[in-house]
Design a protein around this nucleic acid. Structure first.
Lengths: 210, 210
DNA sequence: ATATTAATCACCCTTTAAGGGGCATTTTTC
DNA sequence: GAAAAATGCCCCTTAAAGGGTGATTAATAT
């Protein structure tokens, strides 16, 4: 694997011991240099653009601005920098927020240290990196319930409705009458025990029917 | 890392050379046994339940039923088996389809062979596994456009609308008047050059504004 | 073969939501 | 202190949603 020379890294992590541990680990690796470390995003604010790192390792739970909130701001300040979240939290919500806010990687702190180095290499090559638990959580968030009470057609119709199409648009798209769509919608509501579009979508998403 | 003994693997892959290569590689690994290989899902259909593998390595492009179509069927036949897709294709659509159809891993064929072994270990431990390019594609599909023409509030409102809430529900949720929601919606439509909810959601999703 | 489920369509009806227009105020941000 | 963002209040018309009741056909499972 080819790794560009002189990869500069900044670490944002509030625990001093952990922060120094990572810094040691990264500095020990040939061609990797930790150019600066900060105990919080707020502390990094006026310096990090000057550091101009290739990669930022950032924790989620930080004093003041959280890592999640910091990401879009950092991304704007350093548009060509890669961000790797390194945290103990692995809830679906946090993972999706971090990745949608600009992180290229999401690692949990119980990882072998070699994986941190690997992750840096991977994101430097334009890839993404996740620990297995994170990958699993993300994959699970994509997976549909195999025991859906809805039929194929009902699922299909609810999916179209969930992306904002109205009944006549659904009818046109599926080459059926609007009254047929209406019947399906009524049956969907019956099965999901709801009586509105919004509730149906909510229940369906909660149970991964769509 | 602890690995349970006797991990049984089935390979579904149409190219004989590749198939035998994987089989050799996996059999060479202690505690891993390839119990059977098939050139297609259709060929495996009547035997694979009897093979009862812990892990199935499956290609996407197969003669007859594609790997994507095969996944939900296999998942039903083997509810406790882990599936790893191993393919040359890495489009967003295929990746999301494969993962939402039940795959626990998605690897591309240009990977070092050790990663296949690692992936099997990871999914056996209940994790997920993706190669960096796949992770990047998946992450990118989550990322929002940083240059959205919409303001924070407009984005927030469009998000609520996109999950099926109507204006009065949005108003209640954000503790504002329904007329304010209406004004925001009007401005959203102006900015996105649309004049309906469905079109706004379509344009916004296409440009990752929501 | 035959019951069940899924999918299709057609009317009735009332209420709610959506969309277009214009305008005014306050709060935030640069 | 100008500009952008967020808030709110009217006018208006049409489109959509939701509830009820029913029927026919196609697919599928027992």
């Amino acid at each position: 694997m080819y790794t560009p020379l002189h990869v500069s890294v900044v670490i944002i992590e509030d625990d001093e011991t952990v922060r120094n541990g990572y810094a040691y680990l990264i500095n020990r690796t040939a061609a990797f240099t930790v150019v600066n470390t900060y105990p919080s995003f707020d502390a990094s604010r006026n310096h990090i653009v000057n550091d101009n790192p290739d990669v930022v390792i950032i924790d989620i739970q930080l004093p003041g601005t959280s890592g999640i909130e910091a990401l879009p701001v950092l991304k704007k300040m350093l548009p060509f920098t890669h961000f790797i979240v390194l945290t103990i939290y692995e809830t679906e919500k946090l993972i999706i927020e971090a990745l949608s806010n600009g992180a290229s990687g999401y690692l949990t702190k119980n990882m072998a240290s070699s994986r941190i180095i690997n992750a840096i290499k991977e994101v430097m090559l334009g890839g993404g990196s996740m620990s297995p638990n994170v990958a699993k959580t993300l994959i699970r968030s994509l997976q549909k319930n195999q025991n859906s009470p809805l039929t194929k057609r009902e699922t299909q119709i609810l999916e179209l409705i969930s992306i904002g199409k109205n009944r006549s648009q659904v009818a046109r798209e599926l080459f059926i009458e609007i009254d047929t769509v209406k019947t399906h919608v009524k049956n969907i509501y019956l099965k999901l025990h709801v009586n509105s579009k919004a509730d149906a979508i909510k229940v369906a998403k909660l149970n991964r029917l769509i």
